[in-house]
């Protein structure tokens, strides 16, 4: 565990906390894509099937359970909580996310490290995570104005991806046998998706103005 990896995990955790805080404090999920949240729940459930077969560390097990539980809690809030549910605008959140699920699964059937149940679901979760933010980014772009907490949520998620790339560079330089092409290539693709958002996030931060994405 290096400092980039730890910082990445912490910003990931922070992003989820920010989102939960936003939903809890405002009793609203306006600006939040339910589809992205459902994709993340699928990502964690598919990837952490190894909770039952492999033990890495207490830290790993703990974080896996936190990610699964928090992603399910967010989906639950948006789908079931009476007040939060009311604030969900399904007309803005129209991305056909099942296409992402189907495409990721198809890719995992062809591109995986081993043809086993766990490995295929692992590869699937990696591909799906890479594109899971798309419904959220499209929703933000369509609604134009982004409230502070939602903006910070996406910012921390993007920071987490950026830090993971630094972590891989560090591991590549310090661990002689570190080769993890599926995760690294997907990770770079995923981070690139945030480039546009980051550009506007920094502009609004520099000008001390509200974050606005061009239509």
């Amino acid at each position: 565990m290096n400092i980039f990896r730890l910082a990445g995990d912490m910003t990931h955790l922070l992003s989820i906390l920010v989102l939960l805080l936003k939903i809890y404090a405002t009793k609203s999920c306006s600006g939040v894509s339910r589809k992205t949240q459902e994709l993340y729940a699928i990502v964690f459930l598919a990837r952490y099937l190894d909770l039952f077969t492999d033990f890495i560390s207490v830290y790993n097990t703990f974080m896996k359970i936190v990610f699964i539980a928090s992603s399910l809690a967010i989906v639950w809030c948006i789908r079931v909580h009476p007040m939060v549910k009311r604030s969900y605008d399904k007309d803005l959140d129209t991305f056909r996310h099942y296409l992402l699920v189907a495409a990721s699964f198809l890719l995992a059937l062809f591109l995986h490290e081993k043809f086993t149940f766990l490995e295929i679901f692992w590869a699937f979760s990696i591909y799906l995570e890479a594109v899971a933010i798309l419904p959220q980014l499209v929703l933000l772009q369509r609604s134009g104005n982004v409230d502070n907490l939602t903006g910070q949520y996406v910012f921390f998620l993007g920071a987490y991806r950026g830090l993971y790339i630094l972590n891989w560079i560090y591991r590549y330089l310090t661990e002689p046998r570190f080769t993890r092409w599926i995760a690294c290539v997907s990770g770079v693709v995923q981070t690139a998706l945030y480039a546009d958002f980051f550009y506007y996030y920094f502009i609004s931060w520099k000008n001390n103005s509200k974050l606005k994405l061009p239509a």
Binding site: R5, D54, N60, M63, E119, Y164, R177, T179, A183
Partner: peptide, 10 residues
Amino acid sequence: SSITDAKDEL
């Protein structure tokens, strides 16, 4: 260890 067996990242 092989390439695949160390899924130590989250």
